[in-house]
């Protein structure tokens, strides 16, 4: 008997919204190809409606996630790192295909993404210790400032540049959720597969549903919906193109101004951004509100 050639089982990629894996409400997909134009998979074409659903899920998750202890949030982020470590090869392959780079480089990028989760896991219970503190006001008052999460953050994930498809993605999501925000993410439109697979990791890492929502599709549909949405509190425009045009950073920022969203600008040349550089605290501190409490002191 001759050897039977075994056929691989291919994966249907899905969105990640509210802890579940829906297809797009549009019922549509788009073709995702590698750097040589070879078809890799179909990705769901997330729509404006999918975006609004994701914002609802993110809003519903804020109370629980912001209310959990910083210690528990750190445990969850570290758990994500543990889960990713176990699926390192899968992600390395997806990143290599997505970005057209060698397997070794791709694996290094995944390693760095894992370490980035660990970096932010350690920040959850320390951010208040560097960004908050007692204020020595001139009077008989106890005065304390503490950072609190902003709420729902819309993220335009990096769309281009070395490491954007996964390390870049992790580098923008982790700091947002570390402080207790929830996120709706427009993932890299042309290289969405590592991001959609990340949803599977997040779903098995004790992260409550809705804390991170991942949407593939046209950035020009998703990003403006986030920018104009009244129930989104802040925007990270990491992957928005800086120049003019629909979905450009300037347009999105102007739209966000209607509800005075906090906006983190993209790099001057987003495609040239090096995501392998150790992050500081900029992204972490961009999505917190400082709350100051006064209380009298007296017998």
């Amino acid at each position: 008997m001759s050897d039977v050639i075994r056929l691989d089982v291919m994966k249907t990629y899905k969105l990640f919204v509210g802890g579940k894996f829906p297809r797009s409400e549009s019922g549509r997909v788009y073709e995702v190809s590698d750097s040589k134009g070879q078809w890799l998979a179909n990705a769901p074409l997330g729509t404006r409606k999918d975006t609004r659903d994701a914002v609802l899920a993110a809003r519903a998750a804020v109370k629980g996630w912001a209310g959990t202890t910083a210690y528990n949030r750190g445990q969850v982020l570290y758990r994500i790192a543990e889960m990713l470590q176990g699926r390192r090869e899968q992600f390395a392959a997806e990143v290599a295909a997505a970005e057209g780079i060698g397997a070794k480089k791709a694996a290094t990028l995944v390693d760095q993404a894992i370490d980035r989760w660990v970096w932010y896991a350690g920040w959850t219970d320390k951010v208040a210790q560097i960004a908050g503190g007692a204020n020595p006001v001139a009077g008989p008052y106890f005065n304390l400032s503490v950072p609190e999460p902003t709420g729902v953050v819309g993220i335009v994930a990096p769309q281009a540049g070395y490491g954007h498809s996964f390390l870049g993605l992790v580098s923008v999501i982790a700091p947002v959720i570390a402080t207790g925000n929830t996120a709706v993410v427009a993932v890299a439109a042309d290289a969405p597969l590592p991001a959609l697979s990340l949803g599977e990791v997040l779903a098995t890492s004790d992260l409550p549903g809705g804390v991170v929502n991942l949407l593939s599709g046209r950035t020009a549909d998703i990003a403006p919906t986030l920018a104009s949405h009244q129930d989104v509190n802040a925007l990270d425009l990491a992957g928005a193109i800086a120049h003019e045009g629909p979905g450009a950073a300037t347009v999105l920022e102007a739209s966000a101004a209607d509800t005075l969203k906090r906006v983190l600008w993209p790099a001057v040349d987003p495609a040239a951004q090096d995501w392998t550089v150790a992050p500081g605290t900029e992204r972490l501190l961009s999505f917190v509100e400082t709350k100051t409490v006064w209380h009298p002191m007296g017998q």
Binding site: Y71, Y78, A121, G122, W123, K126, I130, T281
Partner: peptide
């Protein structure tokens, strides 16, 4: 366990500790 977890996070953040 929590104590080790907490200080683990400081190891690469000493520049920020003041």
């Amino acid at each position: 366990a929590a104590h080790f977890f907490y200080y683990a996070g400081w190891a690469d953040k000493l520049d920020y500790a003041g």
